[in-house]
Nucleic acid binder design. Structure first.
Length: 299
DNA sequence: TACTCGTGGTA
DNA sequence: TTACCAAGAGT
């Protein structure tokens, strides 16, 4: 009889302590899981839950969303942040209709080819929606593995191939068990093995944690420089989009100029929104959310 | 590789 | 109050 493995301990903990999140309920389909994964990219769980519920109520299938213009997706996105994700999610739905009959593909290669689906999201969908055995590495998993297995404080940027390989070695052989373990690793990092104040007293692997054994060393050297927001193009884009989201008719350039005093920056932000497919120019002087009305006549 | 891309809760 | 930052992706 061998000692329980790392994955076994964390999985056992997960089955008793996992949060009751709606996308984890039995019978939730691949489309709903994909939507949750995209919304959860850099957005806290608490804010995603109501948005996810409303989104799927309006668009129960990918085909439902694919039939709508980007403007509707942008409005439904609300204030989750990074609204390009809404545009990409719709593009993703369109691609699934065109390539996969409106279904979410179950092959990693096909998932990765979809707009807005990267290394993490593709593996998360393959594992959580289809029960496949893939290492699913997000920032939480990287931190958990880094600490508990390597004994390191999780400093420095992610090295995807190495993180994937290190996590893969910990996964059970059985696909269903591996998918459960992946969810468990993520949950542990989100709830217990947190970045700032880890709750080691509630951790199922505290007795075999290399990081704890070595005195929980803090990250050495300068971490990534703090992200600022005030005064950036991102803030201006947010202000511009806020106006366009509320508008029921095209908005004049003059009115958009008023959201920011620096006109150069304002124009740059607006140009960026157009380039990203969030906004379109209706005529010489007015703008609207992409597809927010009748098609624009081109002379 | 390093940088951009929103938003709002928390310490 | 200011600073940090939360299930990444794309370039």
């Amino acid at each position: 009889m061998t000692e329980p493995t790392f994955a076994t301990l964390v999985s056992r903990w997960y089955t008793h302590h996992a949060r009751d999140l709606p996308w984890r309920h039995p019978g939730v389909g691949a489309w709903a899981i994909l939507v949750s994964e995209v919304m959860l990219q850099q957005t806290p769980v608490a804010r995603v839950i109501p948005a996810w519920t409303a989104w799927l109520s309006r668009w129960p299938t990918a085909a439902d969303l694919a039939a709508e213009p980007p403007a509707e997706a942008i409005r439904m996105w609300g204030r989750l942040g990074y609204p390009r994700r809404a545009v990409r999610l719709r593009e993703c739905a369109v691609a699934m209709v065109e390539r996969h009959g409106g279904q979410v593909p179950d092959r990693l290669e096909q998932l990765l080819a979809l707009p807005g689906v990267g290394t993490y999201t593709a593996r998360a969908v393959a594992a959580f929606a289809y029960g496949q055995r893939h290492p699913v590495v997000d920032t939480n998993v990287r931190r958990v593995i880094c600490r508990a297995v390597a004994g390191e404080p999780d400093a420095g940027p992610a090295t995807r191939p190495a993180d994937l390989a290190a996590t893969e070695e910990l996964l059970p052989t059985e696909p269903a068990a591996a998918a459960l373990a992946s969810a468990a690793f993520m949950e542990l990092g989100a709830v217990v093995c947190t970045a700032r104040s880890p709750r080691c007293g509630s951790c199922p692997v505290t007795s075999i944690c290399a990081w704890r054994a070595s005195g929980q060393p803090a990250p050495a050297g300068p971490t990534r420089r703090p992200q600022r927001y005030a005064g950036t193009d991102r803030q201006v884009r947010g202000l511009l989009l806020g106006v366009l989201r509320e508008a029921t008719a095209p908005v004049s350039r003059h009115r958009l100029d008023q959201v920011w005093t620096d006109n150069v920056q304002c124009v740059r932000a607006l140009t960026g929104l157009v380039k990203d497919g969030l906004v379109e120019q209706v005529d010489e002087t007015s703008f609207r959310l992409a597809g927010d009305g009748p098609p624009i006549l081109v002379p």
